[in-house]
Design a protein around this nucleic acid. Sequence first.
DNA 1: CAGAATCCTTATGGATACTG
DNA 2: CAGTATCCATAAGGATTCTG
Lengths: 111, 111
Amino acid sequence: MVSTPGFDAKMIDCPALVTIQLVSGKWKTRILWHLRHGEAGFGELKRALPGISPKVLTDHLDALVSDGLLKRLERKEKNVVHSAYDYSDYGRTLIPVLDALGNWGLSHRAQ
Amino acid sequence: MVSTPGFDAKMIDCPALVTIQLVSGKWKTRILWHLRHGEAGFGELKRALPGISPKVLTDHLDALVSDGLLKRLERKEKNVVHSAYDYSDYGRTLIPVLDALGNWGLSHRAQ
DNA sequence: CAGAATCCTTATGGATACTG
DNA sequence: CAGTATCCATAAGGATTCTG
């Protein structure tokens, strides 16, 4: 898994670490970034992230759901299961922070 | 090393990833957090980060310097070498972003 | 479709002893 | 003091195949 461990005492020295832990992982920010446009299904995410394997996508989504940033929506049409992922209310509060990260990244690494 | 690879094309889809990459690493945010109070020597950092090994501290500092966030200051008193690390001007622009991360971490994980 | 199961490679971090 | 040099453990990520 890529999930976040419990609340480590060491984090007290560094509040930023708490947040970083939640979004660290090779594909987590890209998943979160993609979902800014609204929910997306497993397959859509897979297509949006060329190169990711189903196992790794599952790992990352599980971690994000388990950390409470995303919620999983399951719909059954007939006997076909379709699942989608979207921000939870809690996760949505992180978006401005992701914006701050993104803006810094753009202005300091672009060109 | 813990240094950041070149500018990956995939990052274009996710500007936040650019920033995250620079501060990902078990001790990087803690190092950066500590340096907010001003420069610190190798030994001081080591003491401030209980549990870190000299090799890992070196790895992380090298990465941060190589990514341009920190600068290394070397002073020779007699034949004794003392080195200290501090934010570069470039690195200092990241502080508000670290604050955003820290504030989110405090308000959403504390209690 | 949406994963689960397996197996495998490598990156990251760590312990310890040593050095200019 | 400020690191190097080694060797080691584990976690993170990946490729592939299979299934309800």
